[in-house]
């Protein structure tokens, strides 16, 4: 079925638009603050891990902040968000509280899952955040199901379903794509292409490296987006939400981004050079980009420092809470298995 109205599809993989639409001062400041909160939170989490206060896996989002912050700026109340295990940034962007997230990382009763889920498994019904999933690719079908529920109920909510470049190779992703297009489900598939899945670069794992084209055989339009520029993310998100709310079915956004830290905490880091990491950091850092624009626009260094201080305060308070909150009561072992 050819649908001529799908102009977005033509952009698949080709067009890299020039400069994205400018942000207002307020938008720049909000983006800066929200991205800084994620960065400082993650730095603190890395520190607490190093001290032994966090155990198991801990996948940091440092470097990718513009993706969730830009997406969130285009969402409305009620839109659902779901992702994998690299989820701290998504939760903070959804408005979940730092202390609740941090306390989950330390496995305490004040954590979002009362200490039972840990870094990879948190949820918030109130904020429409559906997790926090550990099995690579599984959230893609689940996110498609959230969109199914929206369609079923006839509301105009959109499901924002995040997954990685590695996850994009899982079979259930394509089973979901087919159903989503067949049933015109309102889902934005956000592929966070940070160039690596653990130690495997995209080129070593993917026959089609242009992820915006991964929906082509299902007629799902897609777009490559500079995921290090929060304005570009926001602009693409605006387009995608309009597309979904307009009843056009799913859409794919490939966010070209980068993770600065190791895959999890223990990472041999032999699969890429330090120079590569340094170059992205130096040339494309999402936070520096906003900072520099704000400074050029006449905002003082002092004002920016104040934002950083405010954010650090929140993070320190969260870390303090997360280290002093008690562990869950032993009786919690047997709760929440059935209801």
């Amino acid at each position: 079925m050819a649908t001529p109205k799908k102009t977005v599809a033509k952009e698949s993989g080709q067009e890299k638009a020039g400069s994205p639409p400018e942000f207002s001062r307020e938008q720049e400041l909000k983006a800066l603050r929200d991205m800084l909160l994620i960065r400082r939170f993650e730095e603190k989490a890395g520190q607490l891990y190093g001290m032994g206060a966090i155990g198991g896996f801990c996948h940091l989002y440092i470097g990718q902040e513009a993706v969730v912050v830009g997406m969130q700026m285009a969402l409305k109340q009620g839109d659902e968000v779901i992702t994998g295990y690299r989820d701290h940034g998504h939760m903070l962007a959804c408005g979940m509280e730092s202390r609740g997230v941090m306390a989950e990382l330390t496995g305490r009763r004040g954590g979002y899952s009362r200490g039972k889920g840990g870094s990879m498994h948190m949820f918030s019904k109130e904020k429409h955040f559906y997790g926090g999933h550990g099995i690579v690719g599984a959230q893609v079908s689940l996110g498609t199901g959230l969109a199914f529920a929206n369609r079923y109920r006839g509301n105009d909510n959109v499901s924002v379903t995040y997954f990685g470049d590695g996850a994009a190779n899982q079979g259930q992703v394509y089973e979901s794509f087919n159903m989503a297009e067949l049933w015109k489900l309102p889902v934005i598939y956000v592929i966070e292409n940070n160039r690596y899945a653990m130690g495997t670069s995209v080129s070593r794992a993917s026959a089609q490296q242009d992820f915006s084209k991964r929906g082509v055989s299902f007629n799902i339009p897609g777009k490559q987006v500079d995921g290090m520029d929060v304005r570009a993310v926001k602009a693409a998100a605006d387009e995608a939400t309009a597309w979904c709310r307009g009843g056009n079915g799913p859409i794919i956004l490939e966010m070209q981004t980068y993770r600065y830290r190791g895959h999890s905490m223990s990472d041999p880091a032999k699969y890429r050079t330090r120079e590569e990491v340094e170059k992205v950091r130096h040339d494309q850092d999402p936070i520096e980009q906003v900072r520099n624009r704000l400074l050029a626009d006449g905002v003082s260094e002092q004002d920016l420092k104040a934002i950083d201080a405010e954010v650090r305060e929140i993070v320190n308070e969260a870390a303090d809470f997360a280290q002093h909150d008690p562990e869950p009561d032993a009786s919690e072992l047997y709760t929440d298995i059935y209801r």
Binding site: S113, G118, S119, E332
Partner: peptide, 16 residues
């Protein structure tokens, strides 16, 4: 192992 999914919290994991 106890009849529960594995919890994350250190104390609960030990009990499980």
């Amino acid at each position: 192992g106890k009849d529960v999914p594995m919890p994350y919290a250190a104390n609960l994991e030990k009990l499980a």
